[in-house]
């Protein structure tokens, strides 16, 4: 059973200035008994998330909204297992994939084919899994002979096609997305949209952060509104979207 449970998740970011990043200054402040150190060590803590609790079950389609800096990306990172909460608990049951930045791990000097292998391995695919899907990825990207060229020779659109084709080949139980991914020219956009919808429909739990009301209403059954790292509102998509965006 796929599920995700967050209990009072709090994330504190330590902000280090150049002084507290320096070992020399830490040692010196030890020697001075901490009197000067306490003024100059600059341990500022920013609270990224503050006591966020939620429970997601199979079939949930969760949207995240909130202004810039409200903690959306931090929450997505906690959910994908990158940040360990400073306080509180998170329990994830299921294979989780985050499509926050799909261009990750794309090496401009390597060819398209080599990049498929690198990115696939980073996402946790074994060699034979990649080999099985290689053809599918290549066909989908429609890059043809360019797959044997270094990625630096690609146009931006072509790079995105490649990244998209690789990233969406996996079949996660929990899918985490930062904004909708569809990219490229008109023809590809349609195809990409279709594939993404397919992926979203097959995944058991979807979590998507977005600024688009239309998109959220279309894909989500539930929306959480984050403000200053706290849950400001949690409810069905329609109600929260209207409260946040204003009724249309």
């Amino acid at each position: 059973m796929t599920s995700m449970l967050l209990e009072n998740v709090t994330v504190d970011f330590p902000i280090y200035n150049a002084k507290s990043r320096s070992l020399k200054n830490q040692v010196l402040s030890m020697a001075t008994g901490g009197t000067i150190g306490s003024n100059s060590d600059g341990h500022v803590v920013i609270r990224g998330l503050d006591g966020v609790s939620m429970s997601l079950q199979e079939g949930d389609r969760l949207g995240l909204i909130g202004h810039n800096g409200s903690g959306k990306t931090t929450l997505l990172r906690v959910m994908s297992g990158v940040y360990h909460p400073s306080a509180g608990d998170i329990v994830i049951n299921g294979k989780c994939t985050s499509l926050i930045n799909i261009s990750l791990g794309i090496d401009p000097e390597a060819t398209g084919r080599q990049n498929i292998a690198i990115r696939g391995a980073l996402m946790g695919l074994r060699k034979r899994d990649i080999a099985e899907r290689q053809q599918e990825i290549e066909d989908f990207s429609e890059l043809g002979n360019f797959l044997d060229m270094p990625v630096r020779t690609y146009s931006t659109g072509m790079q995105l096609r490649l990244a998209f084709s690789i990233s969406t080949v996996i079949q996660p139980e929990i899918l985490i997305m930062d904004e909708w991914l569809a990219t490229g020219d008109e023809g590809f956009k349609e195809k990409a949209n279709e594939r993404l919808h397919d992926l979203v429909n097959k995944t058991k739990i979807l979590i998507v952060a977005s600024h688009s009301k239309e998109l959220l209403l279309k894909n989500c059954s539930r929306i959480i509104w984050l403000e200053h790292g706290k849950v400001r509102m949690d409810g069905d998509a329609e109600t929260v979207a209207n409260a946040y965006f204003g009724p249309s």
Partner: peptide, 9 residues
């Protein structure tokens, strides 16, 4: 850091 901030490798 790019990879570490995105994928739980």
């Amino acid at each position: 850091s790019d990879t570490m901030l995105q994928l739980p490798v």
